[in-house]
């Protein structure tokens, strides 16, 4: 059994859709409220490590997709979660993986995704005078709006 088959088994209970975009990769679409449970399952099985969190803004479909990439050797497992663009919010996974803190801070400030329960909600990269409610990695970001007067 390859590592990806094992991951697929671990996540079977929550998987809404499973895709293999490339060799060595597995994308699993899950509902937002299942994130912590799915992460815990991976963590308990010691399946790889969290390599990063990617935000994808898709204004046309009214969604922000959040991708949690887990790596084990040559394999990459991605948990894909679609959030409503209007008021995106997701639970923190820091209770399971404390090292996710920085990734969550980046996701929150760049995409305006509220990460509920993240231990340190302060800014990580953006300047102190950056205007609240302006999220640079959203597609409709306008540069002029970025600095508070």
């Amino acid at each position: 059994m390859t590592a990806l088959e094992q991951a697929q088994g671990l996540l079977a209970a929550w998987a809404q859709e499973t895709r293999t975009p490339e060799a060595g990769r597995l994308d699993v679409v899950i509902a937002p409220e299942k994130l912590v449970a799915a992460t815990t399952a991976l963590f308990d099985a010691r399946w790889g490590y969290l390599a990063g969190i990617t935000g994808l803004d898709a204004p046309k479909s009214g969604q922000i997709e959040v991708l949690y990439h887990f790596c084990a050797g040559a394999y990459v497992l991605t948990l894909r979660i679609a959030l409503a663009r209007e008021k995106p919010s997701i639970a923190s996974i820091c209770s399971v993986i404390p090292a996710a803190s920085m990734f969550e801070r980046e996701l929150a400030e760049m995409f305006g995704v509220a990460v509920v329960g993240t231990p340190d909600p302060s800014r990580l990269f953006l300047p102190d005078d950056w205007q609240d409610g302006v999220y640079p990695l959203r597609k409709d970001f306008a540069e002029e709006a970025s600095h508070a007067e």
Binding site: M102, L124, L126
Partner: peptide, 12 residues
């Protein structure tokens, strides 16, 4: 930790 002092927005 607080970073960003060399942030250049390259991804954007």
């Amino acid at each position: 930790v607080r970073l960003g002092y060399a942030h250049r927005g390259i991804e954007k």
